[in-house]
């Protein structure tokens, strides 16, 4: 079980990475942590001609707070987010979901943005992104654009990312005050792919009435599924 031959490039800027992807349109694949892509290569389920590794681009591995949001760069490891203490206060749902993302040994290498761009229907982070209205910053040959989580996931392993675009950053807004949340999944073993899972929030207004309720299911469809908001009876 070894990958088919491919060429490899390690650009040192996002612009250069986009140029490489565009010059090898349809043949190239972005490599971040590789925790999803490398198994596919080893099993020869994917046979790209060129891997464009983002790891040598300086300054992409940040996790920081910006105006109350948790902002995560393309090369930030899942483990770095796990260790970013403010996340537990700003977006506790996001923080709590991470322990379900494979195993610590994968999270040391795997990136948050890589998992989102890979868009496995059984993955946790896409569901959390949808629940929390995350925003994706995408860079490509025509510059930068922002995509809302509800518009990002298209179908199995497919997002709105064009083959010469890169997910440069994801922004998880802080959970509103008076928001309760829960995250759970069913897997054969803790850390395995979930057979199904749920990510949910309920936000109350100052009077205690429900202002917003969200349920996002994953592992049960081609993308995370957000059933229509429960209506008031």
């Amino acid at each position: 079980m070894k990958p088919a031959p491919f060429d490899y490039a390690a650009p040192t800027s996002l612009d250069e990475a986009v140029e490489l992807l565009a010059a090898n349109e349809g043949e190239s694949k972005v490599l971040a942590g590789g925790q999803s892509l490398m198994p596919l290569l080893n099993m020869r389920l994917a046979r790209p001609g060129l891997l464009v590794d983002l790891a040598r681009i300086p300054g992409l591995d940040y996790v920081r707070e910006e105006n109350g949001a948790v902002v995560i760069g393309a090369m930030a490891r899942q483990r770095a987010l796990e260790r970013f203490a403010p996340a537990a206060t700003l977006a506790p749902l996001l923080a709590a979901s991470l322990e379900h993302v494979a195993h610590p040994q994968n999270r040391n290498q795997g990136t948050v943005c890589g998992s989102l761009a890979h868009a496995d229907p059984a993955a946790e982070l896409p569901a959390v992104a949808l629940t929390l209205d995350a925003t994706f910053r995408v860079v490509g040959p025509n510059g930068s654009r922002e995509v809302a989580a509800k518009d990002f996931f298209v179908t199995y392993l497919t997002t709105v990312l064009e083959s010469s675009e890169i997910l440069a950053e994801v922004r998880f807004p802080a959970q509103a005050p008076r928001t309760g949340w829960a995250f759970d999944e069913v897997a054969r073993r803790h850390g395995d792919f979930a057979m199904c899972g749920v990510s949910t929030t309920v936000t109350l207004d100052a009077s205690g009435a429900c202002r917003d309720a969200r349920v996002v299911l994953f592992g049960v469809g081609a993308t995370p599924i957000a059933p229509r908001a429960p209506s008031r009876r």
Partner: peptide, 29 residues
């Protein structure tokens, strides 16, 4: 397993445990 699940290939990179079967040698430059 050669797809990052079993952990037999675990090594440390800068003290962090990672799967060496789903890491390219060029990534470890």
């Amino acid at each position: 397993c050669e797809h990052g699940v079993c952990g037999a290939c675990t090594v440390l990179i800068s003290g962090k445990a990672v799967r060496s079967c789903i890491l390219l040698a060029v990534q470890a430059d």
